Simulated scan of single mutants.
Amino acid sequence: MLSVAAVKYSRGSFIFPGAQPAPHRSFSEEVAVLNQFFGCLASGGSAYVMGDPDVPNCNWHVYYATEKPELPMVTLEMCMTGLNNERAKVFFKNSELGHVSSAEEMTKDSGICDIIPEMEICDFEFDPCGYSMNGINGKALSTIHVTPEDGFSYASYEAMGFEPDAISYNNLIERVLRCFEPLDFSVAVTIFGGRPAASSYGRKLWIDGYNSKDLVQQELPRGGLVMYQSFMLSTERPASPRSILHCWESEEAEKRVTGKEMVF
């Protein structure tokens, strides 16, 4: 039987928190269940709520436990809401013209196939709307889930196991945003195994056409780091968001906000 070496559970804030079944009615409830299974690992279970405490519906939740230090790896997670209507239409199975779209067409027409072109993609469309995919390329993995209905449209993107030096941070964000053009989005980057990728993926991100709402850094047990940033559209939606990555000259400036650890 295989033993668990490490576990990380992360999510944003629920759009409809009151509609969640147990054990997702609160983060405390989720952590209690996770600790039943993974609290026995050497680091113990650690839980964090990252974000502005004055905006409780825009936070990032992280649970982490590990038996030993992780191997070097970068994970990028994005949550997007308020998708552009034209972009969202791609993920409806039946179009206004009567055409029935396949998952393969959604992958191509949305531009998802161009985010990391080397990925071999297994995609799926839902009826009457919605989309999901998993991608793989060697050790690199990615996944996308889309709920396109107007009023509560949502998309998530996650990539891990890729070579940070081979994929530009700003280009990766730009490609994802081009597929959905959201009103609001967040980016969470988790870095394990030292900080070789911190020179690119561990920096503040500036997005043309968006205002930065929050920036939080949180140390994880055994040398991990999570950087969480959230953004909202600043003016009228740009035709194609362009991501620009700026370096901060001062490490102190990056530490404007720190994560809040939850003790259980």
Rank of each mutant, 00 (worst) to 15 (best):
G223T: 03
G51P: 00
I121D: 04
R175T: 05
R237T: 03
A140W: 08
G193R: 06
K8R: 15
A65E: 12
D123N: 10
S13C: 05
K255T: 02
M80Y: 06
Y63H: 09
D208N: 08
D52C: 04
P53I: 00
Y169A: 08
R11S: 14
G44C: 05
E96N: 05
L71Y: 02
P53Q: 06
I244R: 15
E261S: 11
V90P: 03
W206V: 07
I121N: 08
S156C: 12
R175W: 09
V31C: 09
L83S: 13
S168A: 14
N170K: 12
S199N: 12
A253G: 00
S28W: 01
I167T: 07
P221T: 07
S3V: 08
Q20L: 10
T66L: 02
T235K: 09
S199Q: 11
T107M: 13
E158H: 09
S243H: 02
V146D: 13
E149W: 03
K213S: 09
F192E: 14
Q229W: 00
K8V: 14
L172R: 09
S199Y: 04
P117M: 05
K204W: 04
M50H: 01
S240W: 00
S10L: 11
A42R: 14
K213Q: 13
D150S: 13
R25C: 06
Y169I: 00
T75M: 10
L2C: 03
D184L: 02
A65Y: 06
A253N: 00
P241E: 04
V31D: 03
T81H: 12
K8H: 09
E219R: 06
G18A: 03
S142K: 05
M133D: 06
A42D: 14
R178T: 15
Y157G: 03
W60D: 02
T235G: 10
R203D: 08
M80S: 14
D214C: 15
T190S: 14
I191G: 01
V263A: 12
G138I: 08
F126Q: 03
P69R: 11
E251Q: 00
D54K: 02
G39M: 02
R178K: 14
F185Y: 14
L215S: 10
W60E: 09
K260A: 05
S110P: 11
A159I: 15
D208V: 08
Y169H: 15
G194S: 05
H61I: 02
S200I: 04
Q217R: 08
E120A: 07
V176C: 15
E67W: 03
E30W: 00
S28A: 15
P53C: 01
L76Q: 06
N94M: 05
F91C: 08
E30K: 06
F152N: 13
H61T: 02
E30P: 01
A88F: 10
E254F: 01
S13E: 04
W248Y: 06
S212R: 13
P164H: 05
G135S: 10
L97E: 11
E174G: 07
T81K: 14
T81L: 14
L97C: 02
P241K: 06
T81C: 10
M78I: 15
V7G: 04
V74D: 04
D208E: 12
E67Y: 02
P117Y: 10
G82V: 07
A239Y: 00
A88Y: 09
V31R: 10
T66P: 01
K255S: 03
E86S: 11
Q217E: 10
C179W: 04
F91P: 09
F37L: 13
